[in-house]
Design a binder for these strands. Structure first.
Length: 423
DNA sequence: TCTGGGGTCCTAGGACCC
DNA sequence: TCTGGGGTCCTAGGACCC
């Protein structure tokens, strides 16, 4: 029995940083850092920034001296730009294989059945070069018979420049040495909790995990860990998902730009998040059956803490902004406690299904004007910009709005932000 | 003294991912 | 002063059914 057909995992290097660099040559060769929402912490680092010792998720305020000292170029996250660049990269990859699964904003699995083994490496290099030329994004490629091995190969290619950007683990002979040198905590699907348990059994490398008894793995870390063991042995347990499955839940949650202690401010914020959630629902043609709203104080600070949340059923299931806003406000009013400085709130929708599959209630006939109203709002906001029309419950001042003090232009999705070439 | 057996469905919480 | 956002999957246990 042969091994399954090869898979490739293509992954953008320091993806958000590379998106910024694609439009500004002056960012080449200098330290570049991209911050999370609210300019809170480090989420993408150029090689120069990694060399300065900045870790993933490190709070931005702690980095301030280092940023000053080394002239680090700092960016707020620009998801409109990154999302569009991701789409462009995938357009290129689709020309190399029709079997694609977009796994995340910067990673795609490709099925490469039909390629002779000796051609794989050239093919992978060709993909890298084409993506680089057509989008400006540098990538690495991992090749293997299973998703887990392709992920592992990709991590190896990224970490060791000697591989030239491509690591091929489709050949069983080279796998052993690579797996013996690979830390088990870095294997895809092995998190901190599982790594601790494995360390207790002296399993510290990917090779040792591969050699673990699958039943023991199952008792240690559920069927998920058992699958990882088998995948490391070259037995595919995780298929390519060409068509993304319909999503099960959807959330809009944000930290505030500054703490909020009045009920009015939090109600405005969740009305805004519920409004955004409604837009997302309608984009996907979905309705929600359940809504949960929460608020909480800063978990990183000492002092009085509170986390409040309430959920409610949406009957009938809905994608109507007015129903979502009303439900979210009711939940927050019920969860509210005076006397705290709140730093974050959110709206979570669950029990999603396609609008045409939603159960109808026996006595209420849907009002056709409701759908027309939502459509009109969506069209106005699409044409004239977000928040051209919005529920009054969102407020006008929105003093709780997030920080984003270093945002780059939306180079590829907004005419006014197009890059300009000067002679 | 002594109280069945076999299901399904739902939810909360943990673990993990990027 | 100051620490992101948005997902998935799995399991255990409770509620409920006949």
């Amino acid at each position: 029995v042969g091994e399954p057909p090869p898979l490739a995992l293509i992954d953008g290097n320091n993806f958000y940083v590379s998106c910024e660099r694609a439009f500004d040559r002056k960012l080449e060769g200098v330290p570049v850092l991209v911050l999370s929402n609210n300019d809170g912490c480090a989420i993408a680092r150029s090689e120069e920034v990694k060399a300065l010792g900045v870790r993933m998720g490190e709070p931005a305020f702690k980095l301030r001296p280092l940023i000053e000292k080394h002239g680090v170029r700092v960016f707020s996250s620009n998801y409109v730009l990154y999302g569009d660049m991701s789409r462009r990269v995938n357009d290129v990859l689709n020309q190399f294989s029709p079997e694609a699964e977009v796994y995340s904003i910067d990673e795609t699995f490709l099925g490469l059945s039909g390629f002779a083994h000796k051609d794989l490496w050239d093919h992978a290099q060709d993909m890298r070069a084409t993506v680089r030329r057509w989008t400006g994004i540098p990538t690495c490629v991992g090749l293997g018979p299973t998703k887990t091995l392709a992920k592992l190969a990709n991590a190896v290619a990224k970490k060791n420049p000697v591989f030239g950007g491509v690591c091929d683990l489709t050949h069983p002979a080279v796998r052993g040495a690579v797996l013996r040198a690979f830390a088990v905590a870095d294997v895809w699907g092995v998190g901190a909790a599982t790594a601790r348990k494995l360390a207790g059994l002296s399993v510290t490398t990917a090779a040792a995990l591969r050699d673990l008894d699958p039943m023991l793995a199952r008792s240690l870390g559920t069927v998920v860990l058992e699958r990882i063991v088998r995948e490391l042995r070259g037995i595919a347990c995780l298929g390519l998902e060409h068509v993304p499955p319909t999503r099960k839940g959807l959330a809009v949650t944000r930290s505030f730009g500054a703490p909020v202690s009045g009920l009015g401010g939090v109600l405005e914020a969740v009305a805004t998040y519920a409004t955004r959630a409604g837009e997302k629902l309608r984009q996907h043609g979905l309705v929600a059956g359940q809504l949960c709203a929460f608020l909480h104080t800063n978990p990183h600070q000492p002092g009085p803490r509170y986390h409040g949340a309430r959920s409610t059923r949406l009957v009938p299931m809905s994608d109507d902004t007015r129903a979502l806003v009303a439900a979210a406000r009711r939940c927050i009013e019920a969860a509210w406690r005076d006397g705290f400085a709140y730093t974050k709130a959110g709206v979570i929708l669950d029990d999603l299904r396609r609008r045409e599959d939603a159960p109808r209630s026996l006595f209420e006939a849907p009002d056709p004007r409701a759908a027309a109203l939502m459509r009109a709002m969506d069209e106005l906001n699409a044409k004239h910009g977000r928040h051209t029309v919005f529920p009054a419950a969102m407020g006008i001042q929105r003093a709780w709005k997030q920080r984003a003090e270093h945002c780059s232009p939306r180079y590829t999705t907004r005419l006014s932000d197009l890059p300009v070439l000067r002679a």
